[in-house]
Computed example of a mutant assay.
Amino acid sequence: MRNRIKLAILGLAAATALATPALAHRQWLLPSATILSGDDQWVTVDAAVSNDLFYFEHVPLRLDNLAVFAPDGSPAKAENQSTGKYRSTFDVQLSKPGTYKMAVTNEGVFGSYKLNGEQKRFRAMGGKVPEIPEGATDVRLSQNMGRLEIFVTAGKPTETVLKTTGKGLELVAETHPNNLAAGEEAKFALVLDGQPAADVEIEVVPGGNRYRSKLGDFKVKTDKDGKFTVKWPDAGMYWISASVQDDKATIKNARRRASYTATLEVMPQ
């Protein structure tokens, strides 16, 4: 009996260990470098969805809605785009000095309804709702707006591409995202549709968790003006992410979920 109880406990622990990572899939962009010097440099970016940050083991991140902006805010070209089994990649030529922004934005509608007593679910990208059959009941709609960003600087950091668009959840960088150092504080803010996003929780996760027994993550929260501060414990790549829900969807009778995610490199002092 004692052995059977012990085996049951071990089985439950194993099931929990397997289930936990499945809930922790994170989307990310990872540049080969964030600060470069010299003329005519290139950067390669990996894009994936995984349990362990910056490790390719789940699915690639699709690049259909990838946008690259040069230091003056004009569109720049993403070259050599490729999507494989576990990751997507692309290259960007840094032909102008200053800070570049690379972003993947996605907008989709998730919904469910009952028809003749049977539960139906659907997902549509681009923010358009598919036709719901007559007689459907218990219709529920959710509009998701997601933004993933990275910043890469050639030479001296510049500010132009840091401007927000006024749509969805976005980061306002009071501290330049390519000027982060271990042991120092960085000051940011979150805005939702251009307005301060108050009381929003931001998850901060250092990369390399595959080789640590603990995730090493921590959370901070925005104040009434949407501002927050992060003190970086160590150098390395960090994944930061936040999300909010409200009733300001552009689709009738839908709830909105807006999310923001960025990969930031923190340098040694």
Rank of each mutant, 00 (worst) to 15 (best):
T105N: 06
W232C: 04
D46Q: 06
P31T: 02
A182C: 08
V59K: 00
G146E: 01
D64C: 06
V230K: 00
M1K: 15
R121V: 14
G236Q: 08
T222N: 05
W232S: 00
K6D: 13
R87Q: 09
G166T: 09
W42A: 01
L94P: 02
L23H: 13
E79F: 04
V49D: 03
V43G: 03
I5T: 13
E79K: 01
G84D: 12
G226V: 07
Q195G: 13
E185H: 07
M237S: 10
Q81R: 13
K187I: 12
V172P: 03
T175L: 04
G98P: 01
E118P: 08
L148M: 07
D225F: 04
L115H: 09
K252Q: 11
S88P: 03
Y100C: 05
V266C: 01
A254K: 01
T89Q: 14
Q245D: 10
E185D: 12
V172T: 07
K163Q: 14
T44R: 14
K128H: 13
R140M: 06
A198S: 15
L36R: 07
A48K: 07
I150E: 02
L192P: 00
D246R: 01
L30S: 02
L162Y: 04
H25D: 11
N179R: 11
Q41G: 05
D225M: 07
S32T: 14
L23N: 14
A124D: 08
K231M: 09
L36Y: 01
P21C: 08
D223Y: 11
L192G: 04
L36V: 12
N179I: 04
R62L: 13
K167P: 02
Q119R: 15
F151P: 02
P21S: 11
N178A: 03
N80R: 13
N209I: 11
R87H: 07
K167Q: 10
A19E: 13
A24K: 14
L29C: 06
G207H: 09
T137G: 12
I251T: 08
L180P: 02
V191T: 00
S112I: 00
A76Y: 04
K101G: 01
T164W: 00
S32W: 04
A249S: 15
L23C: 14
T263K: 01
Q269C: 00
E79Q: 06
W232Y: 10
R2N: 14
M145P: 04
K219C: 10
G146N: 03
V266G: 05
K221C: 08
T20E: 15
P196E: 15
K227Y: 06
P268D: 10
V43M: 02
F90G: 04
M267P: 04
Q41D: 06
T83I: 14
S259P: 05
V152C: 04
P157R: 03
G208D: 03
V49Q: 05
E184Q: 10
A8H: 10
V45E: 05
D223N: 15
R121K: 15
A13E: 02
K219I: 04
Y113N: 08
G127N: 07
V244K: 05
G38Q: 12
S74V: 11
